[in-house]
């Protein structure tokens, strides 16, 4: 069963735990500037939105790469950057319709979400359940259904308390 990241902006508090977990897993330092997942702060609207690669079925980044440095991980379905092959030409960053492939100036290569090999740290670190790693077939459908049921956004405040969960194990990755 393929799994995917499910992002629910209405649950996000903007704490950036996901950005720190991501950067630590990938870079070995806490560094939101190098995170593969980003949280946008829509200040005037009072809303936050986490955002990362959706692992498109038809991944334009992969097709655009002139040196075949982006490959599909058969286990996770993630489109992964092969660091040794990437020449840093940035064509994929232009090809991506969502802006989730980015150039890392300190390595001269591009970076994008690779689902941490099937155990994404951002989902583990998210305190409110705004980022979860679930059955890929369910992600889009469930959200659309919930939205349809709701009809209109609630009139009340949207308050997010920490969600119940077990202590995640980061060592398994």
């Amino acid at each position: 069963m393929l799994k995917a990241l499910q992002l629910e902006p209405e649950k996000c508090t903007g704490c950036l735990q996901c950005e720190m977990a991501c950067s630590y897993e990938n870079e070995g330092v806490f560094n939101p500037a190098k995170s593969r997942i980003k949280v946008f702060n829509f200040h005037d609207e009072g809303r936050f939105a986490p955002y990362t690669c959706t692992q498109c079925d038809e991944a334009w980044c992969l097709y655009a790469c002139p040196v075949e440095a982006i490959a599909i991980n058969a286990g996770t379905g993630a489109k992964e950057v092969l660091g040794d092959t990437c020449v840093g030409c940035k064509v994929c960053t232009i090809a991506c319709p969502f802006g989730t492939v980015n150039y890392n100036s300190s390595t001269g290569k591009v970076i994008k979400c690779d689902l941490c090999g099937g155990d994404p740290w951002c989902a583990k670190a998210c305190p409110t359940g705004a980022i979860t790693y679930v059955d890929a077939d369910g992600t889009g459908m469930e959200r659309m259904r919930a939205w349809a049921r709701q009809g209109m956004p609630p009139a009340g405040a949207s308050v997010n308390a920490p969600a119940e969960k077990e202590i995640p194990n980061y060592e398994s990755a």
Partner: peptide, 13 residues
């Protein structure tokens, strides 16, 4: 109130 919000790294918000 529109929503609660976290400072950096805060899981209380």
């Amino acid at each position: 109130l529109t929503t609660n919000a976290a400072c950096f790294a805060c899981t209380i918000a």
